[in-house]
Amino acid sequence: MRLLWWTLAVMSLSLFSILLSENRTLDPLQNLSLTIAAPMENGLRDIADPISGFFRGIFSRGDLVRENERLREELERLQIETAATEDAQRRLQELEEALGVKENRPDDVFVVADVIAQDPSGFKRALAIDRGSKDGLDEGMVVLSKSGSLVGVVSLVYEEFAWLRLISDPNNAVNIAVLTGGEEGSEARGVAVGDLRSRLSLEMLPTEAQIQEGDLVITSGLGGNYPRTLLLGSVTSVEEKPQALSKRATMEPAADLSSLDTVLIITNFRPARLEGP
């Protein structure tokens, strides 16, 4: 009988707490808990780096892992340069065609934030950072890696802290363009969706698109939630189904999402979802 009452009490309390949490009533409490935990989490994350190397080293040699990380950073930098060049060429062509249209996007303004924690839930890909609403952050703002590739969006903002939702999270969908490197520097538009794996699915791509492994994936800017031409990563495989209405592919993010320690938040770009009607 005692267990029955206990179960009912815990269920009621939990559901009531979830409702309060969804109404953002408990934000000050969560901000307080992160304030207390952040210094310890920061210190422990520094200690955890060698542990990470050890666990990766169980399955692969440690020097190979380090070399892989170095090459990955180099690849990310080169991919960004390539994407910028290809996009600049296409952009020039577009501007020539649409003479008189003035580009009025201002230079991006960033807030630099340190990652203090990672959501342990297996069903989310989220990171906590040490910047919050008092630093001008708002939900929906776009987050980049140190090298400048897209890593996610701000999903929850407290006064001094915020949670980021990574692009690999199942709740994230980004309108993208695959730079197919065809004769005319064409691009194929689609949507990048996270699905709890380290790679992202590229969906709703045109069936006639000539997509190949290694093609770069950038934001298309459609929908207004992300600025144009932010690098996401590169295509790793393409799914060919003759009868399918659209083509599917997978991509690997340019940034190593599992070891982010510093991120940049674009504060002057207002995503469409934050703007009023």
Partner: peptide, 28 residues
């Protein structure tokens, strides 16, 4: 068990109450 669940919720992005509920089968 509920105490541990509450502390977990306060340090993650889950709504407060999620882990409290999800850990409760442990008592049973």
């Amino acid at each position: 068990v509920p105490m541990a669940g509450l502390l977990r919720d306060l340090t993650t992005s889950d709504p407060v109450g999620t882990s409290m509920l999800a850990l409760s089968p442990i008592v049973l």
